[in-house]
């Protein structure tokens, strides 16, 4: 997985690319750490560039969401496509992390 971070006002957009699986663990934890420390109000995960997610990847989304709650950062997702969109719908992750389809 690759990612780019862009801050605009208090909103951070993290664009994820590639595959969100267990291998992305270290990178994703850095994203979470930044979210907790950098005093932002909202963090949007742009999933448009992501072409695969598995249950370990969903687990990372849960971690991010819980960290967001603790740090008062609103986590959101947007633009999942293909298999990623299917996974988010099947597991109803948009009910715990708001998602713009």
């Amino acid at each position: 997985m690759n990612y780019t971070v862009r801050d605009l006002g208090g909103v951070r957009e993290v664009e994820l690319r590639g595959q969100l699986t267990f291998e992305a663990n270290d990178d994703f934890r850095q994203i979470i750490e930044g979210m907790e420390k950098d005093g932002i109000a909202e963090c949007v995960l742009n999933l448009g560039g992501l072409d695969f997610i598995d249950s370990a990847g969903l687990g990372l989304l849960v971690l991010a969401n819980n960290a967001g709650h603790r740090a008062s950062v609103q986590l959101k997702m947007k633009h999942p496509r293909g298999q990623v969109r299917d996974m988010i719908e099947i597991s109803e992750f948009h009910t715990i992390i708001p998602c713009e389809f």
Binding site: S55, L58, V62, E89, I90, S91, E92, F93, T95, I96
Partner: peptide, 13 residues
């Protein structure tokens, strides 16, 4: 069809 939060994620599921 298949829709539903995985088990153990949220008490509100």
């Amino acid at each position: 069809g298949s829709l539903g939060l995985p088990l153990g994620v949220s008490p509100k599921a």
